[in-house]
Amino acid sequence: MTLDAGALLLQTVPFARTLGVTFDHTEDGRAVCRLADRADLHNHVAGPHAGALFTLAESASGAAMLSALGDQLARAVPLTTGATVQYHKLAKGDVVAEGRLLASREDVLAELDAGKRPEFDVAVEIRNAEDVPVCSFTFTWTLRPNRT
């Protein structure tokens, strides 16, 4: 599969483009993206707003999912069904998110092939410029089969 998952995500999620999310790497159920430090994205304590961090993490999550399952878009729509977040430290400076699919492609496709609506998780960690974790997320995704 030769899908550029980062480019696809930025094409289909305009808000990620608006914030300036960029992708370093997407393949095999993993994605790395970043958000530059910008004053217009800061909160009241001069770090990236939680909404900006969430969007960065969701972008990494979506691209990780697409890098493994993007070839299934003709038969199913990917949707997030939930998310959890833990904030560990105030983020300062540029931040980098790494997303990792926690299910195997084979297991997800087996459920889809069986006519089920698979659910699976993608873990995301965001690190600051010093490579220190500042927050972590788990996104739950589903593939909703297209109606024929």
Rank of each mutant, 00 (worst) to 15 (best):
A7T: 12
V13I: 15
F137A: 02
V45A: 05
A68L: 12
S67H: 09
L112D: 11
L19S: 03
R38T: 12
H44M: 07
A97L: 05
A91Q: 01
L109E: 15
R100Y: 01
H44Q: 08
D28W: 03
L101W: 08
Q72G: 00
T142C: 13
H25W: 06
A63Q: 01
P118W: 11
T140Q: 14
L73H: 03
T148A: 15
G51L: 09
L35A: 06
D107L: 10
L19I: 07
T55E: 01
P14I: 07
R147S: 15
L112C: 10
P118N: 11
T22S: 13
L102F: 06
Q72M: 12
A36D: 11
V132T: 14
R100N: 01
P145S: 14
L41Y: 05
L101Y: 09
E130C: 02
T12A: 11
T148F: 11
N146M: 14
T18P: 00
T2N: 14
A60M: 03
H25K: 12
W141S: 01
S67Q: 04
P14A: 08
L19G: 02
R75N: 04
V122W: 04
C135W: 07
V21A: 01
A16H: 07
D121G: 05
T138S: 05
P48L: 11
V45W: 14
T84N: 10
A5D: 01
V77S: 09
L56G: 04
P118K: 08
R117P: 04
N146D: 10
L73G: 07
T81K: 10
T81V: 15
A60D: 00
G115W: 14
R117A: 14
A83I: 13
D71N: 08
A46I: 03
R144K: 13
P78C: 03
K116N: 15
T12H: 10
A36Y: 04
T12W: 00
R30S: 05
M65F: 08
F120M: 07
A16C: 11
V134T: 12
R30D: 00
H88P: 00
F23K: 05
V96Y: 03
L41Q: 06
L73Q: 06
E27C: 05
S67W: 08
Y87E: 01
H25G: 00
L9M: 13
